[in-house]
């Protein structure tokens, strides 16, 4: 007898002092309510979380690792986007 699979959900947690949600792993659950409960029960037992997101794994579109060069390397040479590229004299103060 083959059993129907329970959907996979990716879990994102924003920690107590954090600013952004971080991917911490996944859980299996039949629906969003149970997924949220599972995420809370599995990934926040040591007070890690202040906010939890669960997303069906099937809903996530990821960039293709093989296209890493095309997608991300061009940005590496455009260092003028970074504040450290520009020199501002110290006397001007913080900018």
């Amino acid at each position: 007898m083959t059993e129907q699979p329970t959907p996979l959900w990716e879990v994102f947690i924003r920690p107590r002092n954090g600013l952004t949600h971080r991917h911490v792993g996944s859980v299996h659950a039949a629906d969003a309510t149970l997924a949220l409960a599972a995420a809370r029960d599995v990934y926040t037992r040591r007070g890690e979380g202040l906010s939890v997101w669960v997303v069906p794994s099937a809903a996530i579109t990821a960039s293709d690792p093989a296209e890493r060069g095309m997608l991300f390397e061009p940005t590496e040479s455009k260092i003028y986007r970074h504040p450290t590229f520009y020199e501002v004299p110290d006397e001007v103060g913080h900018m």
Binding site: V27, H28, L34, A37, V42
Partner: peptide, 11 residues
């Protein structure tokens, strides 16, 4: 019945 529920019941 399922691993996720192991943790829930233990909690």
């Amino acid at each position: 019945p399922v691993l996720e529920e192991e943790l829930a019941l233990a909690n």
